[in-house]
Design a protein around this nucleic acid. Structure first.
Length: 416
RNA sequence: GUGGGCGUAGCUCAGCUGGUAGAGCACCCGGUUGUGGUCCGGGAUGUCGCGGGUUCGAGCCCCGUCGCUCACCCCA
């Protein structure tokens, strides 16, 4: 049947004007602090060998076990749309031998990620992230700097109603020691089937249960934070010290749980107050065993992934983005064929000088063109007709105030 | 995968106990000479998600189906 409308696949996030301007602004705001800290772009494929994720992220994680878009390509290879960014960066670093060059490797990336979940507010099947990774440095100062870069990005957007949750997952011996006691403790609880199943996959998950009775039950559970080895503890103390120096406040959250298996040591999450159920706007941490797990050298690393979609929602919830940011400097209304030609040339010149200039094409009546100019939000409007062309002067009208000034066409640039 | 809510003009929604569709916003044109935002006048717009059933008659009732949405799980 002809004319059937085709809809976007379920749960994808799309941005139409004018909201797409907000999206772009947010993305750039999140990337900028990384660039300023010496991080370089790494542009990676959105699909990878499935094994990269089962091995890197962890086969027992929800992300890998039930949320991946996996398919077989024409060469019978198992391919997966990337559900997160770190594993791909590691793969590329190893594949291209970057780990044999100067350390640390500092890169950022931005793009679409995919998880086959039931969509809800702030959770999409295709979503966007900005991430950075700093690989090959154990210095706790880099941990603090990575966190500071994320914080600076959120602040640049104008967000203030968020907090930073911080913890340390320790090294493998810290976790092994804790796990023994935690499992003993959990064995004393009377759990329903689903909860027991979760506990068997990852006992730390129970710390994240939202039910009151579970929160109460877990209140006395042994905390990983109390099992940190001396080295892990010392590292974490330094991270906290540097954050204090930076004036970045955080909330110690020893019950924080992350869904990806590779995290070790310093781990953090940015949580926004106004977002509802999906309130995490970004998170990250150390992953000191990941590189080796993926066949590379034994290099440590730390990074984060920030949710662009959620940052947009947060910005909207806080009402911090002014649409003044996205309006044109000037709109030219040409009257007549000759004026249209001149308008094209004038606009091209001003654009080359970094101004944003629109032309009201379409030979509309002046009144209609002015209405359109008003709606566009352009800061200034100029009507270009025969008399202006003859005199070389235009009336430059400031739309906010209605004030006009006579300006020579070739010095318009100085007035915008 | 589980549960709740909802699907009526581009958008937000109204539509009483079934009688065959409306508002606001937005949009377009006009209010006579080349300057917007207010005001006034006019105008276009809907397979009432889809399919079936009940009925003389269904947007309103029943069944199915698809979709959207929120929450759980999990996470950006």
């Amino acid at each position: 049947m002809a004319g059937q409308k085709i809809q976007a696949p379920k749960g994808v996030s799309e941005y139409m004007p004018p909201r797409s301007d907000v999206f772009e602004f947010v993305r750039e705001a999140l990337i900028d602090p990384a660039r300023r800290a010496g991080y370089s772009l790494m542009e990676l494929p959105v699909f990878e060998d499935t094994e990269l994720f089962t091995r890197g992220v962890g086969a027992s994680t929800d992300v890998v076990s039930k949320e991946m878009y996996t398919f077989t390509d024409r060469g019978d290879r198992s391919i997966t749309l990337r559900p997160e960014g770190t594993a791909g960066v590691m793969r590329a670093v190893i594949e291209h031998g970057l780990d044999r060059g100067a350390l640390p490797i500092k890169v950022w990336y931005s793009g679409a990620f995919f998880r086959a979940e039931r969509p809800q507010a702030g959770r999409y099947r295709q979503f966007y992230q900005v991430g950075i990774e700093a690989i090959g440095l154990d210095d706790p100062a880099i941990d603090a700097e990575v966190i500071a870069i994320a914080d600076a990005g959120f602040r640049a957007i104008g967000l203030t109603k968020f907090r930073l949750d911080l913890t340390s997952l320790g090294d493998s011996q810290s976790r092994a020691a804790h796990r023994v006691d935690l499992l003993k403790f959990i064995a004393t609880l009377d759990l329903d089937e689903a909860t027991a199943a979760r506990a068997s996959i990852n006992p730390l998950r129970l710390f994240d249960d939202k039910r009151e009775e579970m929160k109460n039950a877990m209140a006395k559970a042994p905390l990983l934070m109390d099992y940190l080895s001396d080295a892990s503890r010392a590292h974490f103390e330094q991270v906290k010290k540097y954050l204090n120096v930076l004036g970045i406040s955080y909330v110690l959250n020893p019950r924080m749980v992350r869904g990806l298996d590779y995290y070790t040591g310093t781990t953090f999450e940015f949580v926004h107050e106004l977002l509802g159920a999906q309130s995490g706007i970004g998170g990250g941490g150390r992953y000191d065993g990941l590189m080796q797990e993926l066949g590379g050298q034994e290099l440590s690393g730390i990074g984060f992934g920030l949710g662009i979609d959620r940052a947009v929602l947060a910005a909207e919830a806080e009402g911090v983005i002014s649409n003044e940011l996205f309006v044109s400097d000037l709109l030219i209304i040409p009257l007549g064929e000759l004026a249209k030609e001149r308008a094209l040339v004038i606009a091209a010149g001003l654009r080359a000088d970094n101004k944003t200039v629109e032309i009201a094409f379409g030979d509309r009546a002046l009144k209609g063109a002015m209405k359109a100019a008003d709606k566009s939000g352009a800061r200034y409007v100029v009507v270009l007709g025969d008399s202006e062309i003859a005199s070389g002067h235009v009336e430059l009208k400031e739309m906010n105030t209605g004030a006009t000034a006579s300006v020579r066409i070739d010095s318009l640039i100085n007035e915008l």
